[in-house]
Design a protein around this nucleic acid. Sequence first.
DNA 1: GCGTTTGGCCTAAGATAATTAGGTTTCTTG
DNA 2: CAAGAAACCTAATTATCTTAGGCCAAACGC
Lengths: 147, 147
Amino acid sequence: MIDRIDCSILKLLARNARLSLKELAAGISLSAPSTTERLRRLEERGTIRAYTIDVEPKQLGYAIQALVRVRPLPGRVQIVQKLIESTPEIVECDKVTGDDCFVARLFVRSMEHLDEVLESLAAEAATSSSIVKRQVIARRQPPMAPI
Amino acid sequence: MIDRIDCSILKLLARNARLSLKELAAGISLSAPSTTERLRRLEERGTIRAYTIDVEPKQLGYAIQALVRVRPLPGRVQIVQKLIESTPEIVECDKVTGDDCFVARLFVRSMEHLDEVLESLAAEAATSSSIVKRQVIARRQPPMAPI
DNA sequence: GCGTTTGGCCTAAGATAATTAGGTTTCTTG
DNA sequence: CAAGAAACCTAATTATCTTAGGCCAAACGC
């Protein structure tokens, strides 16, 4: 499904998604039109879901990052999910196996702000929060190999 | 530190980091050269940490995504951190407050593969794994407002 | 086994976009 | 209030991207 060349494209774009077509083409030793066509197919097949940026949260005023495990009260799963979705401070949330139904990552300006967000969930769910002390591994790509 | 225009730039690029300079300039109603200069400063100040892509893990052969809480055995924190860093299946890891010293996200091809990765940690740490059943919120940006 | 089709690549030209240079306006500051 | 700096602009040059058309090799049908 994904050959060696597609793999190189993904690696190059993961490192810098704003690479010009020319640079990208040079990186994979193909012509510009062929590279365009490869890119188009990667997008079409959904391999590349999005081109995006990684923003420094502190520069946006978010001093604190936390991981929160959320256990909805019986019968409140749907409500809690809606609540989570509509909480803009939550930047990522997974529904997982186990007692902790949801695991969310959130960005807040202060401890007070964290408390505020958690309070908004308190009526519908039990939460356990962990403050991020350090990012040991910033979001990276898993090993990419031709399939 | 970040004005209304920078904010718009960040929002536009978060949605599509490959927007051409011309499109970006049109989006914020500035000329192309001014837009270039704004971008340059956002990069220089570290507000934009990286331009990257969001890849569909399934298309790379990763059928399963898991969140793992890792509690190193006494005195083994450093060793475990090294181990985590050198595990390519781990795509993200945070050092957090609380008993669970690390929280990692990993991509694996199968349950056997998951077991394999966890086994490699077993000698140095206790782990609790949760399989991701559904991404309720895919990585998004927190609210952006001028600061 | 051979002609045909398809997929993927190429080059080259025309169209589009990015950069550079130089000037204008506006805000800040001595 | 004048000087300087910061941020913007336009226009011309330079570079890049897209389009069109053709080549080649592997897969396919007869």
